[in-house]
């Protein structure tokens, strides 16, 4: 197994764990972390799968950088919202009634 494929496999596992976390975890902070794990998994796959050729391909690197920026922004927004929710309700979980 080439190192690139290994990266991709690890990425897939991370992504799956991340998705499970986002869907299943109630605690919001951990959910945000799970989202970051998910994102990292996707980036690993992106870089890993592109390593099949002998030369290193710059395009996925550029994409991952952009992706990281997006993920950071999303995380910041999520954290800000969680803080606001905590300040308002004192809880770190979403209300369950769905409204």
């Amino acid at each position: 197994m080439s190192s690139g494929l290994l990266f991709a496999c690890v990425g897939a596992i991370l992504f799956a764990m991340g998705v499970a976390g986002v869907v299943l975890i109630a605690h919001l902070l951990r959910r945000i972390l799970a989202f970051n794990v998910m994102g990292s998994g996707a980036f690993l796959i992106l870089v890993g799968l592109a390593q099949r050729y002998d030369f290193s391909d710059p395009v996925p690197q550029a994409m991952v950088l952009t992706g990281i920026v997006v993920a950071v922004a999303a995380t910041a927004l999520a954290l800000a919202l969680v803080r606001r929710l905590h300040a308002l309700t004192g809880k770190l979980e979403l209300p369950t009634d769905g409204t």
């Binding site: 986002v22 989202f35 998910m38 998994g41 799968l49 395009v59 999303a74 999520a78 929710l85 979403l94």
Partner: peptide, 25 residues
């Protein structure tokens, strides 16, 4: 908003993974 955020992030995460696979292929 938080519920929406997680849904939209999950959605674009899945999309991104798809893009990664397409690029890999």
């Amino acid at each position: 908003a938080l519920r929406y955020l997680f849904a939209t992030l999950l959605g674009s995460g899945l999309y991104l993974l798809g893009v990664a696979l397409v690029y890999g292929g």
